[in-house]
Amino acid sequence: MNHEREHPISVHDVTVSYDGTAVLNNIGFCVKQGEIFVVMGGSGSGKSTLMKAMVGLLQPARGRVLYDGTSFWEADPDVRRRILRRIGVLYQRGALWSSMTLAENVALPLEEFTALRPGEIRDLVSFKLSLVGLSGVENSYPSEISGGMMKRAALARAIALDPEILFFDEPSAGLDPVSARLLDELILELRENLHTTIVVITHDLESIFSIADTSIFLDSADRTMIAWGNPRALLEQSEDPRVRRFLTRGRLSGAPEG
């Protein structure tokens, strides 16, 4: 029981396949309460696929995803919905609902899942938008704002219901370095202040080293996870050349550069 409280997410021996071809094999790890857990790996290594299997979008061919000890894919639909309500997801491109304003985007989960009155929802929406630095553009449509603002608005929506677990799919993708670092800082702030457990899917090394407590490394050739630990420790101690090559931006230490 204690293990479950300390590890809100655990993934056991998960294999995911598309059309009968396994794209991820035998993935297993646990995420500690309140930590920032990074899933890293090159393009095509199955990072986003793993996230889909964890947030209820893609059923694994084998294995279990446990939230506080409850197996998500074996649970009945009501239990699944309850689990999903404790999760917030920030998608790679924001995935804001394009026919709604930013305020409506953030308000929708509140309208759907709480008994709050419209005035209270309005206040909460402005508060969440101000947390991500977007006061004043509540009534803009997603198509009217920049990529960075879109990501921040999507983050405001993801934290609308104060989720216990937040997933970020490639948060720095498509952002300039400054906006990407701002988002990293925001992730750290969220963990600090809301005690949220955070899972980040990324290949951005700067992000990995600045925010990750723990990480796993997925290898695109073997289609499985080949390392688990703090990224700095992995950089210093891992003997696997694939992990070292990734963490050193493709330059194996000792190997000639260029």
Partner: peptide
């Protein structure tokens, strides 16, 4: 076209992960 664009932009996934 509208739903297709929503699917491409992961907007439909966003509904699903809210349990909607």
């Amino acid at each position: 076209a509208h739903l297709g664009t929503m699917e491409t932009n992961e907007e439909i996934d966003a509904f699903r992960t809210w349990g909607i």
